[in-house]
């Protein structure tokens, strides 16, 4: 088990290395630089700034500097916001994004699984059709349109919830729902088909043949097996929530990390781009690892690899 985790951590570091490398060169391939847009700067000053921030160094020296800063998680100061460390920016934005992301994940998983189970149990009946209409809507409507529609209905028309910003729990509802809608729909469909598969298996018949009640059969024997594909979807789910948050935070004016990331890219704020990218990557890679470990707990057949390591 320990060897297994160490091995996985090794892969994470390897992946990070590639991500950093690719981001670094893409960043430098893009036209412009951190100080290019500020027209007020004279060429002399711009050159001086570049010098001060090490941008005149040969590219491989800059690259090595970045690698070192990335692996020590010390990204230095922002190029744009004087006096602000990248770590400050991350620390400031993270709480918003964390609340938004976790809330969206919770909504997507809880409602998605629920809809999927209802659809499967009411197969080809009203409940199934309703759930699947919701799912198709969720998948086909992009989150930014969903966001606008939600804002229009619940904030402008019904005046139930605040339209933007991120201050109270009420503020979090619309962005979280908008962010959750696509993965929620996907999970609902995944859950439905997996539940239908499981309910037609022999071991469900075996469970019934023992005289267990409908509910025990459905939940103890059905749900636990049917949920496995949803668990493996949590990795992609985290990714989808992360990328979705870039757009949603912008629309709802949430000062989160996703917003910070988008701003840093338009500003060519190299250190912030690098910092947020590394942060997002670590988050994603670690959650994928966690999901795999959880999967091993739920599905005993997966433990084989871990056991092999132990012995």
């Amino acid at each position: 088990m320990v060897t297994y985790i160490l091995k996985r951590l090794g892969y994470i570091i390897l992946s990070l290395f590639f991500i950093i490398t690719i981001t670094f060169f893409l960043m430098h391939a893009a036209p412009g630089g951190p100080f290019a847009s500020e027209r007020a700067l004279t060429p002399a000053i711009e050159a001086q700034m570049n010098e001060a921030y090490g941008l005149n160094d040969p590219i491989h020296v800059q690259y090595l500097d970045y690698l070192v800063s990335a692996f020590t998680f010390d990204f230095g100061p922002s190029f744009k916001y004087v006096g602000q460390e990248v770590s400050d920016i991350i620390r400031r934005g993270l709480p918003y994004s964390l609340v938004l992301g976790l809330e969206a994940m919770f909504i997507a998983l809880a409602i998605g699984v629920l809809l999927g189970v209802i659809a499967a149990l009411k197969h080809n009946r009203f409940g199934d059709y309703t759930a699947m209409i919701i799912a198709v809507l969720g998948i086909s409507v992009p989150s930014f349109i969903m966001a606008a529609v939600l804002q229009y209905i619940f904030a402008i028309q019904m005046q139930l919830l605040p339209i933007a910003r991120f201050e109270t729990f009420a503020h979090t509802i619309l962005p979280a729902v908008a962010l959750a809608s696509t993965p929620l729909a996907f999970i609902a469909r995944l859950m439905r088909s997996s539940m239908l598969d499981v309910l037609s298996t022999d071991y469900i018949k075996t469970a019934k043949s023992k005289g267990l009640g409908q509910r025990v059969v459905t939940y103890r024997h059905g749900l636990r097996n049917a949920i496995l594909p949803v668990i493996s979807y949590i990795g992609p789910l985290v990714a989808s929530i992360l990328t979705g948050s870039f757009v949603i935070e912008k629309i709802f004016g949430i000062p989160g990390l996703g917003n910070e990331f988008v701003v840093s890219v338009t500003n060519r704020d190299y250190t912030v781009i690098m910092g947020t990218t590394v942060f997002f990557s670590v988050l994603l890679l670690v959650s994928i690892l966690l999901v795999d470990l959880v999967y091993g707990l739920v599905d005993p057949r997966i433990k084989v690899a871990a056991k092999g390591d132990k012995g």
Binding site: K205, T206, P300, R301
Partner: peptide, 14 residues
């Protein structure tokens, strides 16, 4: 009752 295929008639996660 006993079923035909013992590979599928037992719950894999229990």
């Amino acid at each position: 009752m006993i079923f035909q295929d013992p590979m599928t008639s037992l719950n894999p996660t229990m």
